[in-house]
């Protein structure tokens, strides 16, 4: 089942002096349970694509279709936890906003906290947690509203390299065990290969689909394992050539 479908989407931004076509005739879809990544040269409008999917901005033409009543969960580059709230209250934030803080939903959120080792920190302030734990708390906040589609906007780029690999594994295993569909935006080719079932390669601005690549590393359980596979470097080269060739 398709969770998300973009059909021929274009987006033009206007300023006083110029109009910028950020996205042009972009079409791709995401199936239920899939992990899809979008990569492209920097400044190619990846974040615009996420804003379009979130319905924060409207496409100039074309359509963005989310299946059923599917609502999305957005995870940003930095964890954006509110310092004046405890971890628990941060996790409830989405439910509060959507006026769905019912005992059942609260129980579900508490369940996530317990399952992923943040229960004992639930009364702590974000600043008392490590970077990796904060990012995990941010993921649980996103999951607490039980979204049908997770949008991940370079969620690891603010972390140092060692932490990034660990958090990447962590986030991947949580998403898989919760059986969530995810769409990741990144400029990091190895991150995309190690996480995704499919990779959508975008062109430079205006963004459109250059290629759709399937890493086919699914038999390897974790992103770290995938990074070690001999296939990995071949695919890295291939994708690098796509992006590099595009720049010329």
């Amino acid at each position: 089942m398709k969770v998300l479908e973009l059909k021929d989407v274009s987006k033009v931004f206007y300023t006083k002096t110029q109009e910028t076509q950020a996205v042009s005739h972009l079409s791709f879809d995401v199936n239920e349970g899939e992990f899809v990544s979008i990569i492209g040269p920097s400044g190619c409008g990846k974040t615009t694509v996420l804003s379009l999917i979130c319905k924060l901005i409207k496409p100039t033409c074309g359509s963005v279709e989310l299946s059923g009543n599917s609502h999305v969960g957005y995870m940003l580059q930095r964890d954006q936890l509110f310092e004046w709230r405890t971890i628990e209250k941060n996790v409830y934030l989405g439910l509060e906003i959507q006026r769905r803080l019912t005992p059942e939903n609260k129980q579900y959120a508490d369940g996530l906290l317990k399952k992923y080792g943040l229960w004992e920190f639930r009364k702590h302030r974000p600043s008392e947690l490590s970077g990796g734990m904060r990012q995990r708390a941010a993921l649980i906040r996103t999951l607490a509203t039980d979204p049908d589609l997770l949008l991940l906007d370079e969620p690891f780029s603010a972390l140092d390299f060692q932490t990034r690999l660990d958090v990447c594994d962590d986030v991947y295993s949580i998403i898989k065990s919760e059986k969530k569909t995810a769409l990741l935006v990144t400029h990091d080719i190895s991150e995309a290969i190690s996480l995704s079932d499919r990779i959508v390669v975008l062109t430079a601005r205006p963004a459109t689909v250059l290629a759709i690549h399937e890493p086919k590393l699914n038999d390897l359980a974790s992103p770290l394992k995938r990074r070690e596979s001999p296939e990995f470097s071949k695919q890295f080269e291939l994708l690098h050539r796509y992006l590099h060739g595009e720049k010329k």
Binding site: C54, L56, H71, V72, Y74, F82, W84, L93, I97
Partner: peptide
């Protein structure tokens, strides 16, 4: 970015004020 986060959760302007702008 925090405003973007709240908007992605579907917050209206009143909620953005009470949950974020005022406490921040």
């Amino acid at each position: 970015e925090k405003i973007l986060l709240l908007r992605s959760m579907g917050a209206n302007r009143f909620q953005i004020f009470t949950k974020l702008v005022a406490p921040a």
